[in-house]
Design a protein around this nucleic acid. Structure first.
Ligand SMILES: [Mn+2]
Ligand SMILES: [Mn+2]
Ligand SMILES: [Zn+2]
Ligand SMILES: [Zn+2]
Lengths: 139, 139
DNA sequence: GTGCTCATGAGAATCATTCTCCCACGCGGA
DNA sequence: TCCGCGTGGGAGAATGATTCTCATGAGCAC
């Protein structure tokens, strides 16, 4: 929104920092905040400036390589996801995330919009719960 | 999350400020940020402190009288909504909002969760688009 | 290797939201 | 109506995530 955007999809310059951020995201399963990622990188020695972490995440989001989720406390969380359209089923307890691509919900959203005369529609759908493993562990 | 919560649902004390916030929300159709509401109140003369606006909104949310939406820029937006479970169809252009209560999407969310062994599920579903009026005006 | 750019990092700046602290007022009881 | 208690309000400071500034460092094309 206010970050300087790369006008063209020109080749992005390579850097240790950007690679480190992407590599870390590849190892993690759930959504993580920029602050968390920064702390993790620092712990493992691949130290990267905080501003750089934000810039790398922003760039990856623009490239469609990351999904962003805004938690209720306003913090943004990022995750490496498949590039095709999907939604998420997220475990509140351990963060385990399942990507869900299911035609019915797509049709549902389109139908609801059409019934009310809305066009250019888009939808946000996230499902939160407790995964089987966490439910078992809690018992 | 960190605001002091009223432990019991005891009767809330009456006040001009709280009433003004609620009255304003009743007149508005779409989701509005706390900052916006504060500015609107100030304009109309019903001046209320910013912190008080936040406190009033928080209280109303706790009472289930308001719905909150987090926009992509991280700002929270509030709207007076019916108390029963529903989702929203929001016009990106004018903010007009339609409440949608539709069994199919509820069943969909439950099914997806069940298929993956998740329990205690909950879902966030919002549909954004351009309403008929705005689409016509743009043409 | 040189040079042109873009990337980085430290810290300042932003901005929404929350907290502190003290004062004012709603409200129930006398 | 008058008091007193305790909650609600206001102003401004504090917080915390995110973004910006700007001087410096490092890809990459030649
Ligand atoms: Mn979808
Ligand atoms: Mn629902
Ligand atoms: Zn889990
Ligand atoms: Zn509209």
């Amino acid at each position: 929104m206010s970050v300087t955007e790369q006008p063209e999809g020109g080749p992005r310059r390579q850097s240790r920092q950007r690679n480190a951020v992407l590599a870390l995201l590849d190892e993690l399963d759930g959504f993580r905040s920029a602050q968390d990622l920064h702390a993790l990188l620092r712990e493992r020695g691949d130290s990267v400036g905080l501003a750089t972490v934000y810039r790398a995440l922003q760039a990856l989001v623009d490239d469609g390589q990351l999904d962003v989720l805004r938690s209720t406390d306003g913090e943004a969380a990022y995750r490496r996801c498949s590039s095709s359209h999907h939604h998420h089923l997220v475990c509140r307890s351990c963060g385990r995330t399942v990507e869900v691509a299911d035609p019915p919900v797509e049709r549902w959203a389109a139908r609801i919009a059409a019934e009310h005369g809305f066009v250019d529609v888009q939808h946000d759908v996230e499902v939160f719960g407790t995964c089987a493993a966490c439910a078992a562990a809690r018992a």
